[in-house]
Nucleic acid binder design. Structure first.
Length: 338
RNA sequence: CGCGGCGUGGAGCAGUCCGGUCAGCUCGCCAGGCUCAUAACCUGGAGGUCAUAGGUUCAAAUCCUAUCGCCGCAA
């Protein structure tokens, strides 16, 4: 059975490698064109690099059409003469003609418990929405977005402090195992699937930069989930305001939730107010006692402790380091740009 | 030739617009002291060609030019 792999991100890599390692006949890889990203000769951030590297390491030919949906792109796929195409995190929506190209169709590794979280960013949404469990589903690809029959599914608990990047890292091997299993079953005949329950469908659309803006009036829990969901991309951010200084954009990398008052923080601080136990505004009642160093920010509910952040033009740093360089004073706050 | 920020002792920053009194701050490190004890406190100490190379000037971290490196945004 001639198999073509279609995938781009790191999520696809374990599946690709599993197929190769299992001795399946992987005859080609279709991946996104290499993009030079960044300033001059991009130091980092390239997409498609990893997959292409794996392919060349195993002597597997690679196709990188600008769009798979053009006649040219489709021709490149057909040139591999695949019986089956395995898709994982490819990044382009496939047209019916493309899906129909291989005789056995296409299957997709999707990082959610379908029918929940159909779309481009299922892992991030699962965290953002506060799910405690997610998983991987192998589906048959149909013209609808992630709406095909489910061929296999496995679940996994979401850890309380896990970021989307970390969770995806754990889901990828699970997906690889499931996918390989389905592929091997397909070799011995048609595999039946179950339909997705249309009433349970939820969407996980592509993430945008704008989604990273933190609204400090929301609950600490919600902001915490947002930060984890948008890590490592597109990242949650806010602006650092100091009296008499220009606002500074800051990416919030990691936070920790705290009950308000427990660490000597006054109850009535406006959302976004920055506090440190060393310099606590002298107002409002205190409930707490513990001296825990750190950078605390008032939210709509509790205080949130920021553990790791990255000011514009700087590298990521711990809150401790940040506070040495930018000791908190009165009127310091996080908030929207202006 | 897309836009922008940054490079100051081991870490994070201030100082740069308005050149000289600027090499500073918060930590870390080393030694000593205090303490039952500590990431607490006190005293003392080591450590920097202020990214690099030129230029302007009596004088440059600070102004000009070029180079290297790091980062963010936009695609």
């Amino acid at each position: 059975m001639r198999i073509v792999m279609m995938g781009t991100g790191t999520f696809a890599e374990p599946t690709f490698e599993a197929l190769i390692a299992a001795g399946e006949q992987v005859v080609g890889l279709v991946t996104q064109p290499d993009k030079d990203v960044g300033r001059r000769s991009g130091t980092s951030r390239q997409t498609g690099k990893g997959m292409a590297a794996i392919a060349s390491a195993h002597g597997i030919p690679v196709a990188q059409p600008q769009s798979i949906n053009t006649p040219e792109g489709l021709a490149e796929l057909k040139a591999f003469a695949p019986d089956l195409v395995v898709v994982a995190a490819y990044g382009q929506i496939l047209k019916p003609e493309v899906i129909a190209a291989p005789p056995l169709g296409m299957i997709n590794v999707h990082a959610s418990l379908l029918p929940k979280y159909r779309g481009a960013a299922p892992v991030a949404y699962a965290i953002w929405k506060g799910e405690t469990e997610t998983g991987v589903t192998i589906i048959r690809i149909t013209p609808g977005l992630d709406s095909g029959e489910m061929l296999a599914q496995a679940s996994m608990a979401i850890l309380p402090t896990e970021t989307a990047g970390e969770l995806e890292g754990r889901l990828a091997p699970l997906g690889a195992k499931l996918c390989l299993d389905v592929v091997q079953r397909m070799k011995s005949g048609p595999v039946s699937g179950t339909k997705q329950d249309a009433t349970l469908v939820t969407k996980a659309p592509k993430l945008t930069k704008a989604m990273g803006a933190i609204d400090w009036s929301k609950s600490a829990e919600e902001i915490g989930r947002q930060v984890r969901a948008l890590q490592p991309f597109p990242t949650a951010y806010t602006y650092f305001h100091r009296p008499g200084k220009d606002a500074m954009r800051i990416v919030i990398r990691r936070v920790h939730q705290h009950l308000i008052g427990v660490h000597g923080i006054p109850i009535h601080s406006a959302p976004g107010t920055m506090m440190s136990p060393l310099i606590v505004p002298q107002d409002g009642p205190y409930l707490g006692i513990a001296q825990v160093p750190g950078l605390f920010v008032a939210t709509g509910t509790n205080a949130l402790r920021v553990d790791e952040l990255q000011p514009a033009g700087k590298k990521s740093m711990t809150a401790e380091e940040f506070l040495r360089g930018y000791p908190i004073g009165e009127g310091y706050r996080f908030g929207p740009e202006s």
